[in-house]
Design a binder for these strands. Structure first.
Lengths: 109, 109
DNA sequence: CCCATATATTGCAATATTACGATAGATATA
DNA sequence: TATATCTATCGTAATATTGCAATATATGGG
């Protein structure tokens, strides 16, 4: 149905899935990479850098923002986006824990 | 259009996005957690453990498998799923590098 | 105030995802 | 062989996502 049964999962599972979904698009990966690379947070040069239309970029930025991964500050006419350090660190930590839960190649099948 | 312009991104960006998308669903997070927890790779007890129908679980397993994150071995009538250690380690490493690229709260905006 | 520039929002069209019932296939056991 | 069990696939309904043109909004300069 295209509708996820969120109610049967823990809030942790839902939260992690939501964060991952926010990142799970090449354009959003590219946007995050750009924001990180140009240490200062670039604005709407993104539309030029990547080959997507301005509304499309705006929409991707909105998704990253609503996930809490980035923040935007209005700077005159432009908007300045950068990583939201707390959410970034938290997600990094959570993912680390998730991946570490499976140790080594001591497998069964 | 619901269709991602994969051709304008690097294969690395596409690969990472694909892996993240494979994990970006609470049911698939839950499945991975179960597979990891019950160290031996459980099979279709998953449908019972989580509250989803068997075809739904089967579909999620297929997605995780086609992303290469898990592998399934036929064991009589049942199928035994477990983490694919190589892909798991690689993704862990890639994500670590990705998150580490942004250092500290020395931000701009 | 008018205009140019930067960004957000709206409204689509095309496709993808999620979930499940029904059913098929495959294997063990009686 | 017949039957029960486990898993995969098919088909379908109900959303969700992606992308963009058109348009709205907001800010600074003249």
């Amino acid at each position: 149905m295209g509708v996820t049964k969120t109610e049967i999962f823990t809030s942790e599972q839902n939260r992690l899935a939501t964060m991952l979904k926010a990142m799970a698009h090449p354009a959003r990966i590219a946007i995050l990479e750009q924001i990180i690379k140009s240490n200062a947070c670039i604005c709407g040069d993104l539309a030029e850098e990547l080959g997507l239309a301005q509304p499309t970029i705006s929409q991707h930025l909105k998704e990253l923002k609503s996930a809490g991964l980035i923040q935007g500050t209005i700077d005159g006419v432009k908007v300045c986006y950068c990583i939201e350090p707390k959410a970034w660190e938290l997600l990094h930590k959570d993912l680390n824990a998730f991946f570490k839960a499976h140790q080594g190649p001591a497998d069964c099948c």
